[in-house]
Nucleic acid binder design. Structure first.
Lengths: 158, 158
DNA sequence: GAGTACCCGAGTGTCTTACTTGGTTATATA
DNA sequence: TATATAACCAAGTAAGACACTCGGGTACTC
């Protein structure tokens, strides 16, 4: 499992989608502004996410992306796997040909570690993240910064 | 925690040291041959490992490296930390300034994951790895391939 | 038909990795 | 004391990934 900013960006963007699911399709331009990720880079990430069936898209004005299924059914590991083509901590990709055609000394260590990380991230859904108080707090601040007046008006309407 | 081939190489080399600790100082040339890692690259890795106090060196003919303390007291996490200067899964390095000067939505997720991986790798010592049957098996094959006659003679002398 | 926003491919600067080259020092042995 | 060994050290390099830009298209709404 490769853990880079790429995967972080993808998870952050997906979490943004989950947080604003009630607003209908969310445009990448919105996510870009809120999360500080370049629009074109988001496009590339969402191309992968769409191909993996994690999001669906709506074209045209008012369009954007939405989660392809509920937040309970989307796990962090799936998101990272979708954007990172290579996904394991062993160098040989599960085959045991790491060193000189034979398995390396530490082959089993890395495959254990892969399992460990993968199971940790497979146990965390977007819904889990949304439920966390810290996430709610950060999201609230981001929405405020985004459009203070509109947000107040919207809140007043509830 | 960054998990790359660099860390894998370092752990593999350290495990090689641990496996051959009884032979006195082990030269990097030997490790290079056995593990298929370039000599100069090993030199760079061992420079870091020495600075971190994980190995000690003996110069001159018959010289090489040995573990600075017993295999029970050297943990995989320490080795990886020694060769990878940057060591956490959060992009902001523990500070919460990932996105636009504020903490990113997924800040807590990555810091949890960092803890998870670090504690996993902190629980595994070189002695643990040496004790594993698969490691013994691979090491035995490597030693055989290295110098068949000498090895047989040595074994006969025991 | 104008504007929005997804879709797509090619290219770019920067960084890391893994490795090479070409040295120098220290030390054991002959 | 000469020589070989092997640690030490610094600089450079090819390949790849990352994060991003640029310049287009295409589908859709109003």
């Amino acid at each position: 499992m490769r853990l880079t900013t790429k995967g972080r960006y993808a998870v952050t963007a997906m979490l943004d989608l989950a947080l604003h699911a009630d607003r209908g399709p969310i445009s990448l331009a919105d996510i870009s502004k809120r999360q500080g990720i370049s629009l074109s880079y988001l496009e590339q990430l969402f191309s992968r996410l769409r191909q993996s069936g994690l999001v669906s898209s709506v074209r045209g004005p008012g369009g954007g992306y939405r989660l392809a299924r509920s937040g309970e059914e989307i796990f962090v590991a799936q998101i990272i796997d979708a954007v990172n083509e290579s996904v394991d901590a062993t160098s040989c990709g599960g085959n045991a040909d790491c060193a000189n055609g034979e398995q390396c000394l530490t082959h089993y260590l890395w495959s254990d570690l892969s399992d460990q990380i993968h199971s940790f991230l497979s146990g965390i859904s977007l819904a889990n993240l949304v439920a966390r108080a810290e996430v709610q707090e950060v999201a609230r601040r981001q929405d405020m910064r985004e459009a203070p007046e509109e947000r107040v008006a919207l809140l007043g309407g509830l």
